[in-house]
């Protein structure tokens, strides 16, 4: 793919890719690394992405890269200190910590549903899982969030 096209996609979607990676990895440095690697992969992609499907393709690619990253020996042994996150309020901080207490597969579904606004069918396509799996994960995530949030009340 041409560099000009990659830069266009990067400018349009880099924040969305970064946010999904952040929701998976909970670490700014790792999320930025994954974000960069996703866009660099486009260099080896022979043709432009289908119009209208660009964002979904990038998010699928990001989810796969994050899963690989979570499984890597490297991450297993080196969990970075990440206290660089800044929050505008205590409520935001609590919300961030609560969502982060979920397992990565639940966080991803929560992010794609509540942030990106995708439907369950679209989430299933992006994460390569069944619609039933999306429903199950959503339901479990909501239950866990309720449980954790009730402790703050």
């Amino acid at each position: 793919m041409e560099n000009s096209e990659i830069i266009r996609l990067f400018e349009a979607y880099s924040d969305d890719v970064f946010r999904l990676a952040l929701s998976f990895l909970r670490n700014r440095q790792d999320a930025e690394d994954v974000c960069q690697s996703v866009f660099l992969k486009l260099m080896h992609y022979p043709q432009p992405l289908k119009a209208g499907k660009e964002k979904a393709w990038l998010l699928t690619c990001t989810a796969n890269a994050c899963k690989d990253h979570l499984k890597s020996f490297w991450r297993k042994h080196v969990v970075e200190l990440d206290d660089t996150m800044e929050f505008s309020s205590d409520t935001d901080k609590t919300l961030w910590e609560t969502v982060n207490s979920l397992a990565p597969k639940y966080r991803a579904v929560v992010h794609l549903y509540y942030y990106e606004g995708y439907t369950q069918d679209e989430i299933a396509q992006i994460l390569h899982i069944s619609r039933t799996a999306v429903q199950t994960r959503m339901s479990r995530a909501r239950n866990q969030l309720k449980e954790v949030l009730s402790k703050y009340e």
């Binding site: 970064f18 929050f87 961030w96 509540y114």
Partner: peptide, 9 residues
């Protein structure tokens, strides 16, 4: 609230 939070990142 989650969307508002993530918009800041």
């Amino acid at each position: 609230p989650y969307r508002n939070l993530m918009e800041q990142k």
